[in-house]
C-alpha cells in the first residue's frame, strides 16, 4: 500500500526526488521512534529467519515418525516432546513458521487487493457501479469465513495455494466494506471536490486523496487479518480442511493437541504460543505503520 501510493504520487505529480526521499525518511524516523512497532518488526524478522533457515535450525526432520515413541514428554532429546506420530514437536513448530507466514501474508495481500479495489471503486463512483459492486460484496459477505473456506476448498480440493486463495476470498469483502464507508464521506470533502474542480484525473484523485486517507484503516485491518488468516488456518484444520498432511502447520498441531488437552497441554500450548507470537508481531507492526502513514499524525 505505502509504496504504491508513493510511487504513483511520484510519477504523476512529478514531485522533486528530494521531497520523496525526505518523506520516506520522515516515515522511517517516525517508525523508529515507535518502540512497540520496532519490537514487532524484529519479531517478524526473527520469524522470517526461522522460516528460511528451518532446515538448519530444526533438530529433527519434521516428518520422520516413530509411532511407537509417540506422546513422549519433553526431554533433552525432544525439548517439547513428541506428537501423536512420535514426531519432534519443536521441529514441527519451526517448520510450521513457513506455512504460517505464507498463509497469513499472501492471503491478506490477495484479499486486500481485491477488496480495496471493489470498495473504493464502488464508493467513489456511486450509482450503478456502487449498486453492482456492493451487491457482489454482499454476496461474498453472506458466506461465513469458515464456510467460504470450506466450499472453496471442497470445490478446488485441498492444498496450500488453494487454502491461501480461499482465505483471501474470505477477507476481500471485509476490506471492501471497510474501505467503502469512509470513501462515501471522503469524496464529498472539500479537498477532493477542489481536486476535481481543478481537473485532476480520477485515478490521480483516488491515489492522492482517497487511498492515503484510508490507508491507515486498511493497514490496521491488514494486520488484524494476517492474524485472523493464520487463525483461520487453525479453524479449517479443526474441521479437517487445512493444509494436507504431512506438512507441519500450527493450526493442525493445535487441533491434534487439543485432543490431549487434559493430560498433555503442551502439545497444543506450544504451537498456540507460536501462533500468538506471530499474531502479536504483525499487530504491533500494523499499529506502528498506521501511526507513520497517517498524514495527520505527523
Amino acid at each position: 500500500m505505502a509504496t504504491a501510493t508513493h510511487a504513483a504520487g511520484g510519477n504523476t505529480a512529478k514531485l522533486p526526488n528530494k521531497q520523496l526521499i525526505s518523506q520516506r525518511q520522515r516515515a522511517w524516523r517516525a517508525f523508529k521512534r515507535n518502540k512497540p512497532a520496532l519490537v514487532g518488526a524484529v519479531m517478524i524478522i526473527v520469524l522470517l529467519l526461522v522460516a528460511i533457515f528451518a532446515p538448519l535450525i530444526a533438530p529433527y526432520d519434521p516428518l520422520t515418525q516413530s509411532v511407537i515413541n509417540k506422546f513422549q514428554p519433553p526431554s533433552r532429546a525432544h525439548w517439547l516432546g513428541t506428537d501423536d506420530y512420535g514426531r519432534d514437536v519443536l521441529s514441527r513448530i519451526i517448520w510450521g513458521t513457513r506455512v504460517a507466514l505464507q498463509v497469513g501474508v499472501l492471503s491478506v495481500i490477495i484479499g486486500a487487493v481485491i477488496g480495496i479495489t471493489l470498495g473504493v471503486t464502488a464508493g467513489y463512483f456511486g450509482g450503478k457501479i456502487d449498486a453492482v459492486l456492493m451487491r457482489i460484496v454482499d454476496i461474498m459477505l453472506s458466506f461465513p469465513d469458515l464456510i467460504t473456506g470450506l466450499l472453496v476448498m471442497a470445490v478446488l480440493g485441498a492444498g496450500k495455494t488453494k487454502l491461501i486463495l480461499a482465505i483471501g476470498l474470505t477477507i476481500a469483502p471485509r476490506f471492501a466494506r471497510i474501505a467503502y464507508g469512509p470513501v462515501l464521506g471522503l469524496k464529498e470533502k472539500e479537498f477532493v471536490e477542489a481536486a476535481r474542480a481543478i481537473g485532476q484525473s480520477t485515478p490521480r484523485i483516488i491515489n492522492k486523496h482517497i487511498l492515503p486517507n484510508i490507508a491507515g484503516e486498511m493497514i490496521v485491518l491488514g494486520s488484524l487479518w494476517t492474524a485472523s488468516a493464520i487463525r483461520l488456518e487453525a479453524s479449517l484444520s479443526f474441521i479437517g480442511l487445512g493444509v494436507p498432511p504431512p506438512t507441519a502447520t500450527w493450526g493442525q498441531m493445535i487441533r491434534d493437541g487439543t485432543v490431549r488437552l487434559a493430560d498433555l497441554p503442551l502439545l497444543s500450548l506450544a504451537p498456540g504460543t507460536a501462533l500468538l507470537i506471530a499474531v502479536f508481531a504483525f499487530n504491533l507492526v500494523g499499529d506502528g505503520l498506521r501511526d507513520v502513514l497517517d498524514p495527520r499524525a505527523n
Binding site: A154, G157, A158, G159, G240, L241, G242, P244, P245, P246
Partner: peptide, 9 residues
C-alpha cells in the same frame, strides 16, 4: 500426496 476430504467424499 495425501488429500484430506470429507468422509462421504
Amino acid at each position: 500426496n495425501l488429500e484430506v476430504v470429507q468422509h462421504a467424499t
